[in-house]
Write a protein that binds this DNA or RNA. Structure first.
Length: 403
RNA sequence: CGGGCUGGCGUAUGACGGUGGUACGACUGCUUUGGGAGCAGUUAGACUGGGUUCAACUCCCAGCAGCCCGACCA
């Protein structure tokens, strides 16, 4: 991609009304555009990052047998009435202007929708287990959108749902998804803390969250500094400084960003929506379910929050919009075009700053802001030595490589 | 949803209640290219609606919007 063709531009200053680091940097870099509070567009650079994250998520979901699908954003009343979730004050209700009552809600979760679909196809123990997921925009009428992309009214989520014959099989699968989640966050450059939490409006039992330690996080967790056991403060009986009941270590209170969560749902939804299967003896049982979410847009913002410096974002290679940011100085276009073609030919994703009306300093500043892992400079200075200069975003030193 | 703060070009600011300026940015052209270049030209602003006043960007009220705190929260 040539910077001269990219329709977005970097901004020298962040908008006055963005405080959160993720929103300031993503906006300045031209990754996102705030349309309304808590409602963002993903611009070409931001969408590339989003799709890289989604690709990682897909790969790991497929490893645990997740079947990708796509469900409607418009969820009709009849789906949520059986579980008494239609009247919850969570979603944006939708209907025609002349309708007396809204007939739909913009989907804020899809347990009921998929359970209803599954009930048409699942009837025997032979049909179980299975798991399906989607990556889709979710809509929640947040009373208070905040912190840039960390809490929005509209956001990207990966939601996986699993269906089992019994609780034992659910627990087996739950463990597999847990491991898949750790891999996803690791591949995105994040260390997640597995945290015991409350079920909220999804289940009566405990659930588990994946938390990324960060002072801007809105969750507070109690984390054992020795064994890593963690509980969300909303259910924890630990206090800062207490002794860990698992290993005797020290429990520390930490702020964290919740990037994922997994729920052993049991039969709450299958029961309400008549999703049953017949066992080997022909006896019917409700299907046992689990659901598993990752806020993928929040994940992107979280990476920015934990990986940046005064100059800009620092993307891990796995999700960077481009691997290489190629800069040409002194108008040495002929040479830089050749290098660009070569990089593209080798399949190396390259953002090429071919602009001839920008100063060297501005190009460097933009490269630092956008935060691709490797910067390559071609200039009189490097070409005199028949070379190009390479610098990693995470390092200060540059090195010359011959052409 | 309760509370607070804020509301003027993209950003930062100046103007006593009396003709809305300036700097940076952005745009056009030319000259430039190793850390946000130079010259010239251009662009663009008082959230909305009421009220007070001879006169409102300025004061008052309401609404709206944004941010922040809290409540809430897959």
């Amino acid at each position: 991609m040539r910077l001269s063709h990219l329709f977005t531009k970097t901004l020298r200053e962040a908008p006055a009304d963005e405080i959160a680091v993720n929103a300031r940097l993503l906006t300045r870099g031209g990754f996102v555009f705030k349309n309304s509070a808590g409602v963002y567009s993903f611009l070409p650079l931001g969408w590339r990052v989003m799709e890289k994250i989604n690709k990682i998520v897909r790969e790991e979901m497929n490893v645990v047998g997740g079947q990708e699908m796509f469900m409607p954003a418009l969820v009709e009343k009849k789906y949520l009435e059986p579980t008494a979730r239609w009247d919850l004050d969570v979603g944006f209700f939708a209907g025609g202007k002349e309708d007396k009552e809204p007939g739909f809600v913009l989907g804020w979760t899809h347990e009921e929708v998929l359970t209803t679909i599954a009930s048409k196809y699942i009837s025997s123990y032979k049909d179980l287990p299975f798991a399906a997921y989607q990556i889709q925009t979710k809509f929640r009428n947040e009373a208070r959108a905040k912190s840039g992309l960390l809490r929005g009214k509209e956001f990207m989520m990966k939601d996986l749902y699993s269906f089992h014959a019994d609780d034992k099989d659910l627990q087996r699968y739950y463990g597999e998804v847990k491991e898949a989640y750790f891999k996803i966050f690791k591949r995105c450059g994040l260390d997640a803390v597995y945290t015991v939490a409350a079920g909220g409006i999804f289940t009566a039992g405990n659930t588990h969250e994946f938390q990324i330690l960060s002072d801007v996080g809105e969750d507070t967790i109690l984390l054992c500094l020795k064994c890593g056991y963690a509980e969300n403060s909303e259910i924890s009986e630990f206090k800062n400084g207490d002794t860990c009941s698992k290993c005797g270590g020290n429990m520390a209170e930490k702020k964290a960003i919740e990037v994922g969560n997994i729920f052993p749902l049991g039969t709450k939804y299958s029961g309400a929506l008549n999703l049953e299967y017949a066992d080997e003896n022909g006896v019917k049982h409700p299907v046992v379910m689990g659901s598993y979410g990752i806020g993928v847009s929040r994940l992107m913002a979280t990476v920015v929050e934990v990986s940046n410096d005064t100059q800009g974002m620092i993307w891990p290679e796995s999700i960077a919009p481009f691997k290489v940011h190629l800069i040409v100085l002194d108008n040495r276009k002929e040479e830089s075009e050749k290098i660009y073609d070569e990089l593209i030919h080798k399949g190396i994703e390259t953002l090429y700053d071919d602009r001839s009306d920008k100063s060297a300093g501005e190009k460097f500043a933009d490269a630092d802001l956008i935060g691709c892992p490797v910067r390559v400079v071609v200039s009189n200075k490097t070409l005199d030595k028949k070379s190009a200069e390479i610098k990693k975003r995470t390092e200060k030193e540059t090195e010359l490589v011959s052409l």
